[in-house]
Design a protein around this nucleic acid. Structure first.
Lengths: 358, 358
DNA sequence: CCTACGATTGAGACCGGACTCACATCGGTT
DNA sequence: AACCGATGTGAGTCCGGTCTCAATCGTAGG
């Protein structure tokens, strides 16, 4: 029944100690539950703490333990449900181990990512989970790693950085799903991604993202194994906002030798691609087949329901968090590193290739 | 071209001072850019800092400035795109003013929320943005407010707490959209929400959420003004996972006097409701009309596209963040408090009520 | 040439906990 | 009765910054 009004200064151990008539050291011990404290003292201290509504200052605590019980998470875009779900996996897992999460968005911009990493390091987070915007520009990540601060990568790997990385085998699933398209008779398969590249795309271009290059590699391999020519001309990168995705979609579907199937590299792009296809008055899968990465609930609601590459996003977020916390607590890596596999969920958006009307 | 390997202890001002041959105080002044420092000293200090790759310890800094440049955000579920987008608005705005965000998920559980608020306060965040799980149990929020820490509520208000609150006028938009349904001839309108209530729902039940009670109030009012009887029996709360939503949907559509229109209280529920309707072999809007809260991109892709209540979620998140930062920096509230209005986006999921076949 | 005042500068206090160290105290040994 | 190890306890240091305060330096004004 404390009736103290608004109080400027917070209650500190010193205040509690004074109220309990013991030394600051004893109060700290009783409160922190360490060292030797007599029952009498402990009771008086806890009672005083209760009475004064004492709350420890985590900042001060972190300062000399060196542990902040906070992990930093750097993602491209939480608005993207992919990261929303992964973040959920991370925060749930972190909370279970008593860690909090500071979240920073980079808009898939490397400069912002560098800044984000610095800020988090300055705040002395215990570790970092990063979904790197670039697999090439990774000096900042290397610095983190070298400074000894635990780091776990999510979704994408970083060149020449031997850090624990939680990601699915993109090349494999891409191979599998491309084969599925080939089996349905598709030879003209378009791939649309927001990945930003300095120059345009051509066969040998060095890509900035391991995710995307793995996917293209998988496609290329599947085409090669099927004895077909991979349609490099239908790969469209640098997609930006909804309008740009729409334009790219029209491009690949209206060209001289149009695509018969379109692959969208993530759920956000997929929305615009499908919208564009509907606007053009084309039917899925009769006129165009469609395949997308990420399995969101809404993909089951469209007509037809969409065929997708499902990734265990939540579990991957959770795994990244436990791997990080394991490292923070200095425990050895899990004997068989957990593997994550994407699966092709065949619904209704991929059909046999339409016989061109002529 | 520093070639120092892994180093355990971080570089501190003292280290920089030593390297620059000046006192710790002078180094701190040069680094912190305050007080009087001669050009000579400043140069030497900055050079030394650069050389040693000095980075200030934000924890230590926060400790005696009292400012952590961090705000705490407590939401029910980031996995829900509604909060994903709001969070995006918050983080974008926060970043512009140099603030970071610690995000905590509560699963719409009040106990978790109380805990979350405590943790954030202990971490000495400069302010809090909370989307309260309950509008009734708000002692913990009252405590925050009384302790003088800035607090802004998002989406929902809290009983008897005069805190800045960023939310749309739910009763108004609910009234408008209900009227729209009534005009289409619907009298049997079901409402499905995940809101947890201790007891079941009946006319006078005191609801835990201002959002939901405002919506029901708006519906009730519209029915009254239209001279119709509000179908209390079709209000379904306590929806849980996808399966439970599905069951509730079947209930309201298969009863003796079934609903002719269903309103889903958020995007996550909507997915399951639509799925259930499709499974039952009913067509929207011929057999059942459908209306949902929140305008997500996928609602345009279904057949027919869904009629929704769009809320300026991103802007609301951004507004909550700027209001909070304004309070933190001690600036006066904006003269005309910004208002946010939801709008009814009429697409194709609401049709004239079906003439019952008999 | 002497004084005064602003610019510089270094020593040290302080923020709020955690933790080291030296100094009791006390029942149990031999 | 002298000795010992296991508690209890308080004084004080430290973490890494910020900031106060008094001392020093330079030189412009008298």
């Amino acid at each position: 029944m404390s009736s103290d009004g608004a109080r400027r200064r917070d209650v500190t151990v010193a205040d509690v100690a004074k109220a309990a008539q013991v030394s600051k050291a004893q109060a700290a011990r009783a409160l922190g539950n360490y060292g030797a404290v007599s029952d009498d003292v402990r009771e008086r201290v806890l009672a005083a703490a209760e009475e004064l509504a004492y709350r420890p200052n985590e900042l001060a605590r972190s300062m000399n333990t060196g542990k902040s019980h906070t992990i930093g998470v750097v993602v491209g875009d939480i608005e993207n449900p992919h990261f929303g779900l992964a973040t959920r996996g991370i925060t749930d897992t972190a909370k279970k181990s008593g860690f909090n999460v500071i979240l920073i968005n980079t808009d898939e911009n490397t400069a912002a990512e560098v800044e984000a990493v610095s800020v988090l390091l300055d705040k002395r987070v215990d570790g970092l989970i990063v979904a790197p915007a670039s697999s090439v520009e990774t000096q900042h990540l290397r610095r983190v790693h070298e400074s000894g601060r635990p780091l776990v990568l999510l979704d994408r790997s970083a060149d020449g950085l031997t850090v624990e990385t939680v990601a699915v085998d993109m090349a494999a699933i891409s191979y599998e799903s491309t084969q599925y398209l080939l089996d349905a008779g598709h030879r003209r398969v378009a791939f649309i991604s927001t990945l930003r590249t300095g120059a345009g795309y051509s066969a040998g271009t060095r890509l900035d993202s391991s995710q995307i290059s793995d996917r293209l590699e998988g496609m290329r391999q599947a085409f090669a194994d099927g004895g077909c020519q991979f349609p490099e001309d239908l790969v469209r990168l640098n997609a930006g906002d909804a309008g740009s995705v729409r334009n790219l979609t029209r491009e690949v579907l209206l060209g001289a030798d149009p695509a018969t199937a379109v692959v969208a590299s993530d759920g956000l792009i997929a929305l615009s691609v499908v919208e564009a296809i509907q606007e053009m008055g084309l039917r899925i899968p009769d006129d165009v087949s469609f395949l997308m990465y990420d399995d969101f609930a809404w993909t089951r609601l469209t007509t037809p329901p969409l065929t997708v590459v499902a990734q265990p996003v939540y579990d991957m977020g959770a795994a990244a968090a436990s791997a990080l916390i394991r490292q923070i607590e200095g425990r050895p890596p899990l004997a068989p590193a957990p593997e994550f596999n994407a699966t092709l969920v065949r619904r209704g958006s991929v059909g046999a290739v339409a016989v061109p009307a002529r």
